[in-house]
Design a protein around this nucleic acid. Structure first.
Lengths: 383, 383
DNA sequence: CTGTGGGCAACGTGCCGACAA
DNA sequence: TTGTCGGCACGTTGCCCACAG
């Protein structure tokens, strides 16, 4: 309990959150979207946004806020990461806010890390954990290969600062790196299953850190039993409306693994997208997304429409105002609507005036969602 | 998941909820207290009621509602029971509501049930579960004592309708009833610890039911990670205010083990207390409370004050408007404030006019909270 | 290079009656 | 009457390498 109060390791938190997650800097200005916040709550409660929820006519679709504080958390039971942010809406007077050029956390992801998706053998009670060779040599302290067999004790700490002890041994024919004693304790304590991902990293001091990222499939729908989903959605809006009306601080939770999209955006990133990006129906774009194996890839698509996601309650909102179609047929799971700041237009600045490119997209949209990767394959290489 | 949708067994649910919990009848009228609801949320989030929460000037401290529906639930992970209620505030016009005389669930608690607080031996991996003799003979099917040893297979269902199989055997020297095979599976699946309580009961059809009631101490403070406690508290009030303003239905969750007091009170019970009970400072009363061992007992106390719990936000509220002192020195944990409908005044109706009794309480309050049980011991027997 | 499985030893689980409290 | 313990059998855990993919 008291160990939880101490701030979590930000690098480990980010690693657990996934490769695409960024956090704005404390003290900077951000844009907060009540719509996006509602979507996170709705996704977590398995509840579609209910039309019975009252509108908050005085609550704009976006609030420019000062980010006073971020606290990183992880759930005690599941290690699911989330961030607590303290926001304060800024009044119209203090519009010198454009001075803060923050566009996301500058913390470079450390390269001294590896992750592995667990196999059936890794999680069975029959044996230990097989470590990919390069991974072991990159992040673990070097073994003394003159011993037979080479082995050492490892100490790693998780997000809660719990200690986990493992026996690291290099054996077998052919030789391989294994974690044996201690591994099964960790697996059962964290209730890991095949398909979940573990990650090891080293911080500046050489300390070994250890985190987990569960497979997406298992969502136990933590039916809250505390508050109805309606009350939660109302609470989100009412808290924001009250803060906006009184310019007072309010607190939100951002859960990067549960939320469909980030809903607290650095103001600089937002402004850059809103004021320096021209979009039109038919325009092609790229967007970075997380892949099955926890890395990132750029996917390509075409803008098929521009307009309000919810014209009644959130007119003229820029939240997910772009309707898109994806090139690849495997795009079933992907969002059909995105926000302007999430995409990179393919017509790079130096190509904007090229007439042929401006025409090509329309021609190239025979049926949305069909597999058109090849037709534009060469464009993926343009950088 | 789909098994959860089917309605839970109400008798088992009530047994797990505890001996004092009652539920109003569906279709009856109730009084809903936003203050009490907030207290449940605050208790569950370990958050004191925050003065920063905005007031809802148009939300009265109590709402007379029609209870449209109750759904009984139990959390998937912990089996913690809670009830989902659909309420609709009634307008001033329909004041024929006094016709419904419901004052709580009439469902008589079945006597074919027993509960036992688990010992260290019951929960250890070394052995099984020792059943008190009377309990086993009361609720389990009779054994064939001609066999050596007498034994049978039991099938019991929990709140989620999961099946649990146990071997029930009568052996040892001296003889005793034991659950052996199957017991440890149940203990580890439910993560029971010494101090937790299991309960067995038989329904009308002879079916064996099985529930658990966890020891109070272990509250894992399910830090929601979804909504800040502030937003939850605002959500409670905003949802009620919206429902009151539009006379529309709203949904609340009542968690009998987490909530300090029931906050949805049958209207008849409320009216009886408010209009037929005279209270004054110094008056003595009795109140039924749950004891350590999950039974109930009447405790005695004295009213030491009458007034608003929160004069600023909830003026003239009847929620916990009585300040009380308890006779027994072990009263450290007990509420210092109660509501009128929770107590039984000791001056019974036929004694109201007896002058000596009206004077006695004042004389009998030398120092509040001191151990004065003996002085009024004989009065505990008055019924 | 690494996932799975057979072999085998060590350990934990769980059933039994013997004692008290 | 029932909570805890020593004794003991048996099933599981977990470390080892062999063998593919």
């Amino acid at each position: 309990m008291e160990g939880e109060r101490r701030n979590l390791n930000p690098a480990l938190w980010l690693e657990c959150a996934g490769p695409l997650v960024t956090l704005p800097s404390i003290g900077s200005h951000v844009v907060y979207f009540p719509q996006g916040h509602s979507e996170q709550v709705a996704a977590s409660t398995q509840k579609e946004a209910d039309p019975q929820i009252p509108g908050y006519p005085n609550l704009p679709s976006q609030l420019i806020c000062k980010l006073h504080n971020i606290t990183l958390h992880a759930e005690q039971e599941t290690d699911e990461v989330y961030a607590q942010m303290t926001l304060q809406p800024v009044t119209g007077n203090e519009k010198d806010i454009f001075a803060t050029p923050d566009s996301g956390n500058q913390t470079k992801r450390p390269t001294i890390a590896f992750s592995k998706t667990l196999t059936a053998s890794d999680t069975s009670t029959h044996g230990g954990f097989s470590i990919p060779r390069r991974a072991a040599e990159k992040v673990f302290p070097p073994l003394d290969y003159t011993k037979t067999p080479p082995a050492q004790e490892l100490l790693a700490r998780d997000l809660h600062n719990n200690e986990w002890h493992f026996r690291h041994i290099y054996r077998g024919q052919p030789r391989r790196h294994l974690l044996t004693t201690g591994w099964s304790v960790f697996v059962s304590a964290k209730r890991l299953q095949a398909g979940d991902t573990v990650l090891f990293m080293r911080d500046e001091t050489g300390q070994l850190l250890l985190g987990i990222r569960r497979a997406n499939r298992q969502q136990p729908v933590t039916q809250s039993s505390l508050l109805s989903s309606d009350s939660m959605l109302i609470g989100v809006l009412a808290a924001a409306a009250h803060a906006a009306a009184t310019s007072s601080r309010f607190t939100i939770f951002y859960n990067p693994r549960a939320s469909p999209s980030e809903f607290v955006i650095p103001l600089a990133k937002y402004n850059k997208a809103m004021f320096h990006t021209q979009v039109s129906v038919g325009m092609r774009f790229r967007m970075e997304l997380e892949t099955e194996d926890s890395s990132t890839r750029r996917y390509m698509g075409t803008i098929t429409g521009i307009g309000d996601l919810d014209p009644v309650r959130w007119p003229k909102s820029s939240w997910r105002s772009l309707k898109v179609g994806w090139d690849e047929s495997t795009a079933g799971q992907r969002q059909r609507r995105v926000s302007l700041w999430e995409i990179e237009p393919i017509s790079a600045p130096f190509l904007v005036c090229h007439p042929s490119l401006l025409l090509r997209p329309k021609r190239a949209r025979p049926s949305q969602g069909s597999n058109q990767t090849d037709a534009f394959g060469e464009e993926e290489e343009v950088e």
